[in-house]
Design a protein around this nucleic acid. Structure first.
Ligand SMILES: [Mn+2]
Ligand SMILES: [Mn+2]
Ligand SMILES: [Zn+2]
Ligand SMILES: [Zn+2]
Lengths: 143, 143
DNA sequence: CCCCGATTTAGACTCCGTCTAGTTCAAATG
DNA sequence: CATTTGAACTAGACGGAGTCTAAATCGGGG
């Protein structure tokens, strides 16, 4: 499950095998949802994914979109990004990287971890393990 | 407006002048809300603040609690912490520090910035400035 | 004591996300 | 090819956090 990270752009017909590689049964709806999010490096909310599907004439229920994106995240096919108190972003880029979030306009962009050295991370408490280390640079527009 | 950071514990009768120092008119409700959150270093959601007020026989409306905590954050008396997709935490500790968030049980604890060196932060795009740099270490309980 | 703008309030409302219970689907079987 | 069967999907109700609105209240200055 989940070896080397996939490369963009991902062809539509490569998606079923990609899903299988992550232990996800490739159903019609899951393939469409994956195609929507994984077509390029991007950050979309569940609602945005649903909207894009609808706009392209693909009918998938809200529950399935939310459940499927949650499943993708659980299986590490995509990454959740928690920067906005109002919604979760799903990130098609699963390589280690951090984020710059523009609080004013909601823009979310990737920054490479290269050169950004984070040292002396404390040990996690007993009985716990580190899942992720997220760095978010919050920026605002100058007046 | 906000000079040296205040020290804990904060006495109840020191709150009006503290609010004024941050440019906040110290009304009855604001004093109660500040007293609830600032009594010690802690992270509380708006809902938790409201619950505590109610439990202590202090009647403040939901709208006022949400508005007031938002005002406090805007004026830098407290800090918002975005780690949970379901709710915003308000942090009584405004000194620079980062967070360890236990995804399984919702625990949020502070970690000192000492020794944690973060270098090579990229320049913000033109027309923007860095507001905060937030580091969140997400941990989970071992099975 | 009165005035008046600031503040507070109840409760309706919005939005993201979850849940439920019934339906559809597709793979395996005979 | 027809049947079975459990996983997946669906519509729509529901929940909880947070916002909004319009009316009531407050309290400091005159
Ligand atoms: Mn969209
Ligand atoms: Mn509480
Ligand atoms: Zn990203
Ligand atoms: Zn903190």
């Amino acid at each position: 499950m989940a070896s080397a990270t996939h490369l963009f752009p991902i062809r539509h017909d490569a998606i079923p095998s990609l899903l299988q590689k992550y232990g996800i049964v490739p159903t019609t709806q899951r393939i469409e949802i994956a195609a929507t999010l994984l077509c390029e490096r991007q950050h979309l909310s569940a609602d945005q994914v649903l909207k894009r599907l609808t706009e392209h004439g693909v009918s998938v229920s809200k529950a399935t979109v939310y459940n499927t994106l949650g499943l993708f995240a659980e299986r590490s096919l995509v990454r959740q990004v928690i920067v906005d108190p109002a919604k979760v972003f799903y990130d098609s880029n699963t390589e280690p990287h951090h984020h710059v979030y523009n609080v004013d306009d909601g823009t979310l962009i990737d920054i490479d971890t290269a050169n950004m050295c984070l040292e002396q991370i404390p040990y996690p408490p007993r009985g716990t393990f580190v899942e992720t280390v997220d760095i978010v640079i919050r920026i605002r527009n100058t007046v």
